[in-house]
Design a protein around this nucleic acid. Structure first.
Lengths: 258, 258
DNA sequence: TTCTTTATAGTCGTAGTGACTATTAAGGGG
DNA sequence: CCCCTTAATAGTCACTACGACTATAAAGAA
């Protein structure tokens, strides 16, 4: 390990130091479409380009703590503690930032579409105020498909995040993290369809979800009436289970045997 | 993202710099038991303790490049380019290293048990020479279960690595990375049994592997004779497939419904 | 009303798998 | 040399899970 390299012990700054940042791919479903939270850069390099939110890891915090703090700062959400935040991977290629050596620990966060009241802030984040010092930046929800070329290697980070989330939907109960506290099975299915980009058979999806103990729990005596156009759907809450055994595999577009 | 923080742009060293290391959990199967490659620390802190191999990421290399280089240096293996190396996760909690702020990108590597000739070096790495400057260190294969308390937070990294590998065996063809170029289905099954710590039904395992196109490919006209005590087994090579659809789920120890 | 929309209920056939029981082909011990 | 052990391979059977359906229920819209 690093600590065994004698060079370091003798000269703490014999090695060029790295800047470490925590960047976030914050995903949500807005108007039935997968959206990602982006900020517009207010200074060079990539001034005027859109990028993933994030920021420096401070000396006294872990990358995850930094990610959570940056998320709260840049989105205006007040209660970020209950959010599902997951480390994606770390990007360390030289040259990622033209100015200096930056190592980025990327995280993925999932937000319910209509943010519940517990997460205060603009419900749709239509116009987020820039928050920081000399930077003039705006933050905005952007449809995943239209998240054009981003600054740095953020296109790749975003693609990795989407792929990871899609994969995790298969074998975890993560989909409920996209849903408000109470949701219908149709909404839950929509999460899968939007992230995977494929349609699912509704009765089969329903059967699978209900057959998985702890995936969802019915809300005691409620049905959703006024909103929908069809038959009112039963409301559910997220259950206690986290894993999905056996997994809910996405339909195989290519000729997979299964 | 980090680059948007005005503070940094005005004073490059306004933030305390981080040291970045790449550490490795190198796993293999030796004598039918899961082993991990450890090095003994030759200096404080944790002098005399065992730790995962690793080292500093140099200014001109990525964490993965550094991991590969360190692996080659510390194990004496010459051809490390074909090795399966996968980023595990990044550990960034303050206080991981009592001396300074160190962010570690951890990797997992899988090695075939009898290292093929293409990977030169001591076949069993029984006595690796320490390689670096002022450090007196030895490297050794240690059974996973006996990899006692390690230096720093390496116990957790190692546990994470084992868990990750176990999970990946379920839905990838990764198990062949533990096997020499030509192997029997019994050896492949043993990989699963050792990593998962459970016994598998041999006919069922065989059926599953052979039914998955591209998992393994038979060696043209060979059977292994002299070695085993029973009926000679057919030899296979790793196939071209990487994913396992549907997955090969480990037996559910607790009351999973599946 | 009738049509449309969505939720829910249920059916049927099949792939995949867990739990088995043979059978084959080697080596080792008497 | 025969028999026992060991391990690979072949095959069976039942049950689960799932894909592809059809049918019914309950709302709003035309």
């Amino acid at each position: 390990m690093a600590e065994m390299d004698g060079t370091y012990a003798y000269d703490k700054y014999a090695h060029e130091p790295f800047a470490v940042t925590a960047d976030l791919a914050v995903l949500t479903i807005l108007d039935g479409v997968l959206h990602v939270l982006l900020v517009e850069r207010g200074q060079e390099p990539f001034k005027g380009h859109w990028a993933l939110p994030g920021g420096f890891v401070q000396p006294d915090e872990s990358a995850e703590t930094a990610a959570r703090r940056e998320l709260a700062e840049e989105t205006g959400l007040s209660d970020v503690s209950g959010l599902h935040l997951e480390q994606l991977r770390t990007y360390s290629e030289p040259g990622r930032d033209p100015r200096m050596r930056v190592v980025t620990v990327a995280f993925t966060a999932l937000l319910p579409h209509p943010p519940p009241d517990s997460l205060r802030g603009d419900p749709h984040l239509a116009s987020l105020e820039p928050h920081g010092g000399s930077d003039a930046a705006q933050a905005r929800w952007v449809p995943y498909d239209k998240a054009g070329p981003l600054a740095f290697d953020h296109d790749r980070i975003l693609a990795d995040a989407q792929e990871r989330v899609g994969a995790k939907l298969e074998y975890t109960c993560l989909a409920t993290a996209f849903c408000p506290p109470e949701f219908t099975l149709g909404e839950l299915q929509h999460v899968y369809e939007v992230v995977w980009g494929t349609a699912l058979d509704r009765p089969n999806f329903r059967r699978k979800v209900l057959a998985t103990p702890g995936f969802v729990a019915p809300v005691p005596g409620a049905a959703r009436l006024t909103g929908g156009r069809g038959k009112p759907a039963a409301l559910y809450r997220a259950g206690t289970a986290t894993a999905l055994h056996p997994p809910l595999l996405r339909p195989t577009p290519e000729g997979h045997p299964a």
